[in-house]
Amino acid sequence: MKVVVDMNKCQDHGQCVFAAPDVFRMDDDGHLAYVPDPDDALRDEVEEAADVCPLQAIRIED
């Protein structure tokens, strides 16, 4: 699975981190960091992360 975050849209709300902590995290400066090619077993939580992003900045490319 390929995950793309539009960093121009991202405002560091961090909702994705709650939904998919294995894929998304906030770095020490409070900015989003993420795994661009997570295991397919994490699809459900990545989809939830994409759903809850207030800026709708997360895209899943199969």
């Binding site: 560091d12 709300h13 961090g14 981190v17 709650f18 906030m26 400066d29 409070g30």
Partner: peptide, 12 residues
């Protein structure tokens, strides 16, 4: 700002 939001998230 960011730091405050992170502070709240710690209580989540």
């Amino acid at each position: 700002g960011q730091a405050a939001a992170r502070g709240a998230a710690r209580y989540r």
